[in-house]
Design a protein around this nucleic acid. Structure first.
Lengths: 191, 191
DNA sequence: CCTCCAAACGCAAATAATTTGCTTTTAGCG
DNA sequence: CGCTAAAAGCAAATTATTTGCGTTTGGAGG
């Protein structure tokens, strides 16, 4: 019962279509204004008929979200600085920077604009995995490290909240948040 | 040089059209699936021609965002409990509850899905105003109260982040966040 | 290797949404 | 009371979306 999450079986026709549609979408988004990107356009660029896209993704939002989630998947292991706090700081700074770029902001919005909570949750779990990895390394060194929820609420949440609703945080503020989450370092979550 | 932000002059034809389109949109969203709500439908419901809506709002996302921002405007003053911490807790709990409802979630997504940062910022400023009000009352009583940014990052951000990307927080967790933001109560923001 | 099957695609016609040029209405102003 | 600019209506043209049906394809079982 091994569910594959990356879509259909690799190598099949279905996978080829998905790949070329994704590529076409990325290309067009890079080349032109996002409001000008339409499904017929993507279809032409990808060499498929529009109805194929409509049947597979339903609407543009879903396709854009699909592409964005894939691009948001972390492609590297968080850098090691020697201690958990440094690891988290380095990671958070990079995360904030990537996400607050024009491209990052657009991808987040694309993910959120699609129906259903699957996309956003996957993005959240990407961050979770990265932080869990840093936490495990810290634990292996015998260091104290804040709980996953504390980091999510204390560091990731403000970073994304500000990007989405206000103005992106600078490195200074991100550093403060990381400090703060290490201050009241309680491991458990029960009252 | 008094710019009106609620749209055109009140009483004019333009204002009537805007009002009836907003009302029609709310009605339709309440009655049917959001994916079934289209501009021609709203136009029919509002008694205007579709082109009027297209010219004023451009696309459905913009109209939905416009309607959502208006519905998200706070319509009451935060309850007074006698002290700032209680005020903030009560307000945060209600905010979390409203925003995590199906309707709340949809409205937030609508606001974020529109182009431009105006809608999201207005939502952020709504929260800011409410918190500033609570903070002023606390200050008037001579109480200590965390900075606006501390509350935004420590309370509002996690609430919205979890709604958007994960699972809504319960009252217990909201209470913890409020506690925490009062713990390291520093007024200034400089290092 | 061959045959069969279901899933996915292409094609094209039908439907629906969006854009646009032009006309008409209307609220505000001299 | 007309004038005017902004906004709405109308309808034709364009573009996007849906859908029915035939075809292709990759893989499973013989």
């Amino acid at each position: 019962m091994v569910e594959r999450e990356g879509g259909p079986r690799p190598g099949g026709r279905s996978a080829r279509v998905q790949a070329s549609v994704h590529r076409a979408t990325r290309d067009l988004l890079a080349r032109m204004d996002r409001t000008a990107v339409t499904i017929p356009l993507i279809a032409a660029e990808a060499g498929v008929t529009p109805s194929t896209i409509y049947r597979r993704w339903g609407e543009l939002n879903e396709l854009l979200a699909d592409v964005a989630v894939e691009r948001l998947r972390p492609d590297m292991v968080p850098v090691e600085t020697g201690h958990g706090r440094g690891d988290l700081l380095a990671w958070a700074e990079q995360y904030a920077e990537e996400m607050s770029s024009d491209l990052g902001r657009e991808m987040i919005r694309d993910v959120l604009a699609a129906e259903g909570a699957a996309g956003p949750r996957r993005c959240c779990s990407y961050a979770r995995q990265q932080i869990a990895l840093i936490a495990e390394r810290a634990a292996a060194r015998g260091e104290a490290f804040p709980s996953l929820d504390a980091v999510l609420d204390g560091v990731i949440a403000p970073i994304l909240f500000r990007i989405l609703f206000d103005e992106a945080l600078g490195n200074a503020r991100v550093g403060e948040l990381v400090e703060r989450v290490f201050e009241g370092d309680r491991r458990g979550d029960d009252p």
